[in-house]
């Protein structure tokens, strides 16, 4: 069951310009959390009304052994800027674990994980879990430049088939990470998280190759509990219109890849 609680920050560091890794002490949440789920958080324990709303951030890693949660985020605006000023020993206000997690289909063996930009962050835990389940894993990571390939060193230590793509050519292929899809064979299942255009391209490729998968979506959130209907995304259903709005915070953020409608 999700809970709201005020927790201690164990550490926070800038892992590359504008990108932070925060470690939070929260054994009860760590014990329950699943890969792909997220926290809805606020930077201070006292009630402060500006900025008002919580911010959703995915788990990067769930360290059950030490009872710690690791998140990785990029500074975008006021909320994440404030988050980045917190230090070890400061308090943070959490709701979580929220949403649905990734699931691993047992019968499949050959998996692909495609992450782009900040979308790389929620995938590390998934990849580690795939390896624990004895699966073959190909990982494609894309970003503007090498330093933004989050967790790159950790991925390099894992027993996965890793390929990178950067727009400036500073690591791996120069260009879109989705350009790397063409060379892949024997993939049975795909996971993706990142910019919508990237996920839409992965979806197209998966459909052409009749591969099922899961995508992690982002929408602006109010409540995080399923009450306010701010966070909806378009999901295919068998109704007249062929789709309906579903809540990213409770029905998602993980959805079946082929059911998501990426607009534009």
């Amino acid at each position: 069951m999700p809970e709201r609680s005020i927790r201690n920050i164990v550490s926070q560091k800038e892992i590359c310009p504008g990108h932070y890794q925060m470690v939070i002490d929260a054994p009860e949440i760590a014990a329950e959390a699943e890969m792909g789920q997220f926290l809805h958080l606020k930077w201070a324990a006292e009630t402060n009304s500006d900025p008002l709303l919580r911010r959703p951030i995915s788990f990067n890693e769930i360290d059950r052994e030490h009872g710690q949660l690791i998140i990785v985020y990029r500074v975008i605006g006021r909320g994440t800027k404030l988050l980045s000023t917190l230090e070890a020993g400061d308090k943070i206000d959490l709701m979580g674990p929220l949403g649905t997690g990734f699931s691993i289909p047992e019968e499949k063996n050959n998996f692909l994980v495609v992450g782009g930009g900040m979308g790389i962050a929620p995938l590390l835990d998934l990849v580690e879990n795939l390896l624990v389940a004895d699966k073959e894993v190909t990982v494609l990571l894309g970003a503007e430049k090498k330093e933004q390939l989050l967790n790159l060193e950790q991925y390099q230590e894992l027993n996965v088939n890793l390929k990178t793509a950067t727009m400036d050519g500073s690591s791996g292929y120069q260009g879109f990470v989705t350009d790397l899809l063409a060379d892949l064979t024997a993939i049975e299942y795909v996971y993706t998280c990142g910019p919508e255009v990237m996920m839409a391209t992965v979806q197209e490729w998966a459909q052409e190759n009749e591969i099922a998968g899961q995508a992690s979506l982002e929408e602006r959130m109010g409540c995080g509990t399923g009450a306010c209907l701010s966070c909806v995304c378009k999901i295919k259903v068998e109704t007249e219109s062929g789709w309906e709005y579903q809540k990213t915070c409770t029905t998602g953020p993980i959805f079946a890849l082929n059911e998501v409608i990426f607009d534009e």
Binding site: D50, P51, L52, E219, G222, S230
Partner: peptide, 23 residues
């Protein structure tokens, strides 16, 4: 009712705007 397209909310100074569209 399906409600409005997204974004449906926007944070403002000590407040927020919503246009859920009665989903």
């Amino acid at each position: 009712k399906q409600g409005n397209a997204t974004p449906r909310i926007a944070e403002t100074s000590s407040g927020m705007l919503n246009a859920i569209g009665l989903q």
